[in-house]
């Protein structure tokens, strides 16, 4: 039986961006306010799950042609790479560096290598969640 999900799909199209923006906010705000890579990643995957619910797996795969296992690998590389980077400056593993800079448009901004590490966490969480949901969803 094929039902008409027009309302769900339309609402999804709007809500999706709100959720994604919220997740990005959570991710970037992490160092100063509640949030961070973990919850940001979960939110992003929540958005994709909503997409999956509204459409089907094939369509989502077409919209987002991503191999999520590779996302996990890239995330881990980010995390380990950030840690290893400190070694080049003769510092212990995972020593972070930060500075404040004045950027056009953004004004005074803090630049922190911890964000790179958190990006790793963010990507791994998205990759893991999506891998699990997609694999289970596809299985017979």
């Amino acid at each position: 039986m094929k039902t008409n999900d027009i309302i769900l799909q339309t609402v999804t199209k709007f809500t999706l961006f709100v959720i994604i923006l919220f997740s990005i906010h959570l991710f970037f705000a992490g160092h100063y306010y509640p949030g961070g890579g973990f919850i940001g990643g979960l939110m992003t995957s929540g958005a994709i799950v909503l997409l999956l619910l509204a459409f089907d797996i094939k369509t989502v795969k077409m919209i987002l042609p991503v191999d999520y296992l590779k996302v996990v690998a890239v995330g881990l590389l980010f995390a380990i790479g950030t840690g290893a980077g400190a070694l080049f400056f003769d510092k212990p593993f995972l020593t972070h560096a930060y500075t404040y800079a004045y950027l056009p448009l953004l004004g005074k901004t803090s630049l922190h290598t911890a964000v790179l590490f958190d990006t790793g966490v963010f990507l791994v969480v998205i990759g893991v969640t999506m891998t699990i949901i997609q694999t289970i969803g596809e299985s017979e």
Partner: peptide
């Protein structure tokens, strides 16, 4: 550590 969210700073830094 240049952060204000202590939980997150502990986690990543």
């Amino acid at each position: 550590a240049g952060g204000e969210n202590m939980v997150n700073v502990i986690l990543v830094d």
